[in-house]
Design a protein around this nucleic acid. Sequence first.
DNA 1: AACTTCCATGCAACCGGTTACATGAAACCG
DNA 2: CGGTTTCATGTAACCGGTTGCATGGAAGTT
Lengths: 339, 339
Amino acid sequence: MATIRELARLCGVSSATVSRVFNNPEVVNAQTRELILSTAARIGYLPNESARTLATKRSRMVGLIWDTDHRRPGWRHPFFQEILIGLKTALSERGYHLLMLATSEDGTPDDFLRAVRRHNLDGVVFIDNGRDDPSLQPLAASEVPCVSLDRPIEGPRTTYVTSDNAAGAREAVRHLHATGRRVIATITGPTRTRPGAERLRGYLEELAALGLAHRPELVVEGDFYLSSGYAAMRALLELEEPPDAVFAAGDEMAIGALRAVTEAGLKVPEDIALVGFDDIELAALVPPGLTTLAQDKAGFGTAAAAAVITMINEDVTPPSRLLPTTLVVRGSTGPDPRF
Amino acid sequence: MATIRELARLCGVSSATVSRVFNNPEVVNAQTRELILSTAARIGYLPNESARTLATKRSRMVGLIWDTDHRRPGWRHPFFQEILIGLKTALSERGYHLLMLATSEDGTPDDFLRAVRRHNLDGVVFIDNGRDDPSLQPLAASEVPCVSLDRPIEGPRTTYVTSDNAAGAREAVRHLHATGRRVIATITGPTRTRPGAERLRGYLEELAALGLAHRPELVVEGDFYLSSGYAAMRALLELEEPPDAVFAAGDEMAIGALRAVTEAGLKVPEDIALVGFDDIELAALVPPGLTTLAQDKAGFGTAAAAAVITMINEDVTPPSRLLPTTLVVRGSTGPDPRF
DNA sequence: AACTTCCATGCAACCGGTTACATGAAACCG
DNA sequence: CGGTTTCATGTAACCGGTTGCATGGAAGTT
C-alpha cells in the first residue's frame, strides 16, 4: 500500500503538501496539485482513515444505535429500512460513514459511550427503540452530538426528528369528518410514547375544532400492534352508540381493526370508515386499501443526517424537526379505484 | 482522554506491558495485570481503535454492502432487518463492528474496494441486491474475505450463505401432494437468480419423485413481486385444466396469487391450495394465512458472521452454507385454527 | 557453581497521516 | 528600491497504540 510519504517522494514534494491536496486543495498550486492527484491515481494511493482519525480525532463516522433486543422479536420500527437508506445516503453524500452499534443485553450503561470514544465517532443517531433504555443516558449526557428519532432526548448536544404527529392526526379526523362521519373514535398508541401521545392530542384538538363532543369511551389505548387494534375495535363495536369512523394511530392497529369490523359482519367503509397512520407497505395491499397518513420515511434519515452533521461541524444544536405527513386516501374511507 | 502511556506511568510500568494486558493477558504477571486493569477502570482508560488499527492493520470491522438504489425504491430483501440483527449480534459477540457501505449511483467499480482499503476492513458481507452489480467484482477478486447472501460469488476468498432452496421447494410440493392435490403449478422467481433457479429445480425434482407429470404450462415465471404473482395466477386460471395447487417461490407472489384466486370467485384452500416461500410477516396476517417455507432469518446473519470471521482468522475459505427451511402450515393449504 | 531455560518486562522503532510554525521567493507599494 | 504582504511549500513533532528484540533475574539442570 502506497503511503503519503511515498507519493510525496514520487512527486518531489513533502508529505505536508500531499496532505493539503486532499484536505485543503485550494491552498496548493494548481500544477502541483494536478501532478499529485494524477500520480496518486496512477499508483493507487488511498489515504488511511485510521491514521487520519488518529491525528485529527475525527473519524467521519456516525454511530447508529437501534434495538436488537431478541426478547421482543416482533418489535420493529415501521420504517427501519427506509430510514437506514435515507440516513446512509445522506451521510455518504457528505463523506460520513455509518457504524452500527447495538444494545447487548449484558452491556453496562455506558457501553455506547465507550464505543463512541474508542472509535472517535463524530456523532450518533438513535432509532427509537420503543422503551426507555438507560444505556442511552450516559451518551445523551455527554458532549457527543446525538440525534434521536421519534422521541425527545435530553442532553447538552441532542436534538430529535419526528413526524408532525399531531398535525397528521388532525388531518385524519378532518378527513373523516369531511366524508360525513360524526362519531369518530380513536385507537391510540401507548400514550407514554411520544407519537402515541401526540396523535391523541391531535385527535382531541381536531374534535374540538370541529365542534364535536369528546366522548371518553371512544378513546381506546392500544400498543401499535395488530392484535391490540383488533381488540380495541371489538370493544368499540360493543358500545351503545358505536362509532361510524375510527382513527387508529398506527396502520397495524388499523388493519387489526379492519379485521374486527369484517368479522362483525360490517363493511368498511360503508358502515365504518378507517384511517391509519404510517403508510406501511401492507396498507396498500389489504383490501379495500387503508387510508392513512404517510410519514416521510426517507426524510427521517435525511433529516437525521443533516442534524447530526450540523452539530458536528457547527457546534450549534439545531431545534427539533417536525416532518410533515401526507394523507393517502384509499378504500377504507371511500371508494378506491384500485379495488 | 487517558492514553496508554499515562496509564503505564501511573502503574509504574511501560506502555508495552499495558498493551499486553489488553491483547495477551496471559503473558503478564497476574498482580501487574490486576493493578493495570483496576487503574484503567479507575481513570476510564479506553484503547483507541484508530491507533490500534494503524499499528496492526486490522480494524475489527466488517463492511456490509447492500443495495440502496433509489431507482428501484420497492426493492427489499425480504429479511433485511432480521439478517442485519443476526449479523450485528454475531459479530459483536466476537468483538467485531459493522460498517455500512452502500452503492452510490455515481460510484466507480472499485469504490467498495477502496473503502475497504481506506478503513482496513477485515472482511465484507454482501446482501444480495438482486442484480449483477459490477461494482462488487473488484472486491470479490481481491484478497479481502467476502461472504455473500443468496448468491454465489467468485473470488479467491469468497463464500456464500443461502437457504436450501431446492429442499424447501421439494417440501412444498410434497406437502401439497399430501393434502391430496395432483395438479401442482409453480410461479417461479427470476430463474437467473440463484433462489429462483433452485426453487424451480426442487419443484421439478419432487414432481418426478412423486411420479407426477411435468406440464410446462404449469410453470410461470414471476419476479418475486406481488403483481407478478397476481398476473401469473390469472394466466394459470385460464388454462384448460387449471391447477388445484400452486407453489409460489416467494410469499409476495403467493399473496398476489391469492388475490387473483379470490377475485376469480374461487376459494383458498378449497379450490386452490397455495404455498409460498420466505415466511414474511404478512404471510401470517393475510387471511386465510399462507402456508410457506420459513427461512432461518437470524441464521443468515449468524452464518455470515461465522463465515467471515473464520476467513479473517484462519486463512481458509469455508464451503458455502445451506440453511434448512421449515414448513409452516397455515390456512392456504387447509384449515387454520386461527382463522 | 556454571549453564541453560523461562518469565516478565522495557526499549524504541514503527504504523500513516496532520498541522503549527518557519522559510524563501514573488508580488505589491509608496 | 527597501519593506511588507502573500503564496507555496518544507520541517518536524505529534496522534496512541503494537511488537521484535534485548535484558535481567529466578528457576531448573547437571
